[in-house]
Amino acid sequence: MNPISDQDIDTLAKGYRSDFQPDVESGLARLKGRTQAQARVRSIQRRRWLGIAASLLVLATVGAFGYDLFFAGTSIVNEGEAPMHFELADGTDVWLQQDSEIRYDRTFNDVDRKVELNGQAYFEVQSDKTRPFLVQSGNAELRVTGTTFNLRVERGEMEVEVSEGSVMLTGKNNGVAVTQQECGMVMPDGAVMHMKSPALNRHAWRTGTFTFDNTPLREVLKSIENNFRVEVVLEGNEDFPVKGTFRAENAEDALTAIAKLGGGKLALPTNESPAYRLYNM
């Protein structure tokens, strides 16, 4: 047996307590609650509908983007490292994924509650039958009165997965009611798809739990791609069914587990190739 040197101990000890991961965004919210109490009272009152959460958000108004010239309202972009939680004027709770944007104009909550989403978010919509909650994008429209769901809008498609209640999803020519543990999708061409989703895997970016039941590998990878909005390339023609529940906080965790399962390797994205790459599977 090799003697253990003090250097071995130093190396092992370096990570002491680095397992402690405080929630940075809620830490920041707490700090802002204290700094703003002194410094930015007026600004909070002006944007009272956002409450303290306003401080967390990057508020971009007219002119921040080219297409904002005709847009007067609020844009919230999550530039942080973790999902951002805030409340809209109507009391709806939103968890906005990293690199996602939600926007709405000044008429929000007057006769209806219209928002635009670019990216992914989880909504707990405040029940209000008189003022429907609407998300529109291209050919797709989502109409809600009060329910909880995960919504992803990107590259012209809109995908909703409902955890409670039901929503109305409309494409170019028809619409479907999507109820709990179901998923609905409007494709870029306006076609509507509707399917069961008992495991609520589309919520996984937030819940950290994926459950697969003999799901083909390629579908599993698609699910990881959509959850964390990353690109995954699988080299070769390997395919196998995946079964079981996985804990994963991010794409790397999830893909590492899949690589292990398939006896393969995972290469992380680089500047040259922005996709995660699975090989030797």
């Binding site: 307590r17 402690f20 991961q21 405080p22 940075v24 830490g27 920041l28 707490r30 490292e81």
Partner: peptide, 27 residues
């Protein structure tokens, strides 16, 4: 704050041992 909060909390917890106290210190 976003860049340094987690790392600084990890330093503080090494001293004080408790996560809540560590966050208080860095706050």
């Amino acid at each position: 704050f976003r860049r340094h909060y987690a790392g600084l909390c990890q330093i503080a917890i090494r001293f004080v041992g408790d996560g809540g106290e560590a966050e208080d210190i860095v706050q």
